[in-house]
Amino acid sequence: MAVSSWIRPEQAGLTVKSRHPNSRFVIDALRASDRVVVTHGHADHARPGHGEVIATPETLAIMAARYGENFCQKRTPLRYGESLDMGDVTIRMEPAGHVLGSAQIVIDHDGKRVVVSGDYKRKQDPTCAPFKPIPCDVFVTEATFALPVFSHPDPDGEVKKLIHSLAVFPDRCHVIGAYSLGKAQRLIALLRQHGHQRPIYLHGAQQKLCQLYQDLGVDLGDLRPATAGEKGKPRADLAGEIVIAPPSAIADKWARRLPDPLVVMASGWMQIRQRAKQSGVEMPIILSDHADWHDLLATIDEINPGEVWVTHGREDALIRALGLKGIKARALSLVGYEDDAE
């Protein structure tokens, strides 16, 4: 029987449903659902208001920190490597290397195996377990940076750029825009690895999750709040220091507290120079928590699945490239619909 008869996209999200009455669950559900398996804590994947949430203990902790303790009715923690039976469907969590707690969902049913990668990356990240390739029949891959232009450089080189800039501009406050879950902590950990032991200052929105990372055993060193100076004047003591804030805050009112800020942005999108320039960034740091083009293709080669389903992003390019290599691939949004037509 076709795999798409028991796993296919529905309005609530990618849904698993065999004939067994206890088998139904949705992965990273978009709308409130009875039972949801969550790949990782980013807001577009982990939403509040579900019945049961199955996720890694770290992801559950992140959701509780973001949405409050009552973010769902029932939490079912599932560690990496642990499995859970739901009727005749078995699921298992394996590391995805995206952010702390991020997991691939390995789903076994009817002698077939589907692996849903969630968001993943292959490059170095001291704050989370590395991606583990799992052989499977269908690999459901992300496609955020699925264009040949995305070839993310070695993170070490990017962090060195930042440290070099601190030496060249010792009087300027380096304010770095970074997403508050994952990117901020990875950047801090990389800076620490490169010997930057000075306090790092945080925007209010970054503090809670950094604290949670520290509580979960990820050492981020001396972190302090980037509170405002007196009477709205810039804080002179932040000159030459690193401040991390959400991307939306670095060019806004909030940043007025910083002395002569040098605006840095840490993101995979920074690879496109003209785009980085247009966003008002003075120093782009190319640091991505997603697999780049080469890693997407190399990972699929390594796993060698029977078929690839591509989630939204730049799926056209990835499907095209896989097709040229003779690998069966299609857009996840069309899975099931094409079969009906056949």
Partner: peptide, 26 residues
């Protein structure tokens, strides 16, 4: 590279020099 992949890349980047610099084999 495949012309369609190039076209999609160029579309996204919007600058010929930058597109080719990025897709050239590392």
């Amino acid at each position: 590279m495949d012309e369609e992949l190039f076209a999609q890349s160029y579309d996204f980047v919007g600058d010929l020099a930058e597109t080719v610099a990025l897709i050239w084999p590392q």
